[in-house]
Design a binder for these strands. Structure first.
Lengths: 373, 373
DNA sequence: CTGTTAGCGCTTTCAA
DNA sequence: TTGAAAGCGCTAACAG
């Protein structure tokens, strides 16, 4: 017996069928120039007839040390990522970068694992189990165990948005602290003095409701922290009492939670004349809530957002526009380069590149002087 | 020399370091109950110290024949998928299904390949190169070579939306022909007689502009074809001359193209009092165009959409609502089951399951009697 | 509870 | 142009 090497569809089985060597069949797929066109055609036809789908990608990866897919690690449940238009735009950018090079995109489920006690082991498992050539880590909290797991796996990594303080790793993001300031200034410029802030989560663990400013300062989610602090700085400079500015957060920024957050803020502080939001999704919540209460925006209440997603711009929201798609494209392209270097054993750059993309304030139509001015 | 088996970080190197066998180290990761807690801990700690990130997923996959990721094959360029809110909702559903089971999601770049001549070989390469446990094929044209490539690879497959006529493969979708009819009926019910139709592409190759009804009948994209034919049937029953109903298509349904399509339709047929669209995105294009021309909707022009994406409902568009997210979840769950059966050599069901999900018409506020009634 | 043996399917020198 | 040999890193029997 000839060592039953031709299970169902393997290179070996095709080679055996045709009486050529495995190398030759392999070459037919990977190095057309290494054999005659006629032989190549003969092999491909035979393979087709035998139902051989071509070299098994897993085996090939093991040998070549290249998978052909970039991993994307997203905060929290994967399905939230698709509900937030900003992260969808980011993914569109990544898709553009990766598909340009024929590389696939693998979305890693980074949800809180099945066993709450052993979150770290779960995270390790989720991250380590999936074959990829490198990772883009998108907007993850500082102490997230998934991030630790990604770093443990000796593969190229690009961080997008947060954590922002890991200088050893390449970074793509914006200057959140400065970016939000034009929105805050727009509000004080037209005379608002009683302003509230709505933000999505600042910590990995859920803690909805009013947050103290101390709490903000040691938030583990840098992006939200910077935006809130940036706005507070502007309000302080304008002579407002920073401590008089209520900040309400929600862990998830979907429709229901955003409306609920607006209700919490505005029913507890009915005197507010403006709400600054750290995402467009929360601003939509304020708009919805205001509509429900018969408040007119901006006559009765001014609102600003952050992100500049399509719908926000189309609806005339006054908001900070950040280049979400460009961010994804930049992160994707950078990672592709790093992967290439890594696979070819080229040394990494001495210092990790940091790309800070520009933002701008879109005036929109949801800011006006406070009522009675 | 001991056969330098400890390159940098391998199971073998950890085993050698500790003087145990590879099996034992493997068990420490995969079968905790097979060794003492103390030894396991010792191994895990040593691995950590040595910078061993745990079993290489590619090698593991090769051995276990399981990758831990589901492939999603999307029409056209990957980045379009993120621009269309309906497909984003679909992906959210898939993400929900897959992450529930700790499985990742791999998006296959199915764009028209680099070499236009050899599209088929390119498609094969893209599909065959990526390690996955199975595929969900989302809304792909009948003759698409990527679909052929997917079928060639002997892995479980679920088709979503189209092609609808491959009865050998499991299918998840809706009844497009019937689904659009309430929208068409809503228009004729209030008295519209001069109606235009806007649709996204019906063929794989780009062909923007007015299309003949013959052209529609042999469209390779079943979904669009069914929607248009379903609407035409209603109009015919209502006594309209089907041939008098202009149909305009665009290959891509982004904002710019949709507005442009609306312009083409309405400037060539200024007498139209209503536009039925086969996607919400195109309906938005009509709304935008109408606003630009000073036309009031629905007083001057009635509009209906299809998909029922969040924004459409929020904006009061009269549209057909289909359960995009549920479709993704159903397809994902089904594929997970099939993958499980496949890996455990359980035989597939004799007949491929077909899941047809329900749809409904959302009345909205963009349909009213034609002007002058 | 631990170790030995035998591959998973492929690519890659190197030699013919 | 083609082929033989040598693994890539791991896990699944099976036997101790």
């Amino acid at each position: 017996m000839v060592k039953r090497r031709q299970h169902r569809g393997t290179l070996a089985s095709v080679a055996a069928e045709l009486g050529v060597s495995r190398t030759t069949v392999s070459n037919a797929y990977n190095r057309p120039e290494q054999l005659s066109a006629a032989l190549r055609e003969k092999i491909l036809v035979a393979a087709d007839r035998m139902g051989y789908p071509g070299p098994n990608p897993t085996a090939r990866s093991l040998r070549t040390r290249r998978v052909g897919s970039l991993g994307v690690l997203l905060t929290e449940h994967l399905s939230y990522a698709f509900e937030d238009l900003a992260s969808v735009d980011f993914l569109a950018g990544m898709a553009e970068a990766s598909s340009g090079s024929g590389t696939a995109l693998t979305l890693i489920p980074a949800g809180p694992g099945a066993s709450p006690g052993d979150e770290e082991r779960d995270a390790l498992r989720q991250v380590n189990q999936t074959p990829v050539d490198g990772f883009v880590v998108y907007s993850v909290a500082e102490g997230d165990p998934h991030l630790a797991a990604v770093r443990g796996r000796r593969l190229p990594v690009v961080i997008c948005d947060q954590p922002a303080d890991i200088t050893e790793l390449p970074f793509v993001g914006i200057d959140d602290y400065a970016a939000i300031q034009p929105a805050a200034r727009a509000l004080v410029a037209v005379g608002h003095r009683r302003i509230g802030i709505l933000s999505i989560r600042m910590h990995r663990v859920r803690a909805d409701g009013h947050v103290s400013h101390d709490n903000i300062r040691d938030a583990s989610l840098h992006v939200q922290r910077s935006r809130v602090l940036g706005a507070l700085a502007v309000f302080g400079e304008a002579g407002l009492d920073p401590d008089g500015i209520p900040v309400v957060t929600r862990h998830i920024n979907d429709r229901v939670n955003s409306i609920e957050a607006a209700r919490e803020l505005l029913s507890r502080h009915p005197d507010l004349t403006a709400v600054l939001c750290t995402t467009d999704s929360m601003a939509f919540g304020v708009l919805d809530y205001a509509r429900g209460r018969g408040l007119s925006v901006p006559a009765d209440l001014s609102v600003t957002g952050f992100d500049g997603v399509h719908v926000a711009l189309a609806q005339g929201l006054s908001t900070v526009v950040q280049p979400n798609k460009a961010k994804g494209a930049a992160a994707g392209r950078l990672l592709l380069e790093l992967v290439d270097d890594h696979i070819n054993d080229r040394p990494a750059a001495a210092t990790a590149p940091r790309t800070i993309l520009p933002t701008h304030f879109h005036e929109g139509e949801t800011v006006a002087p406070p009522p009675g001015t």
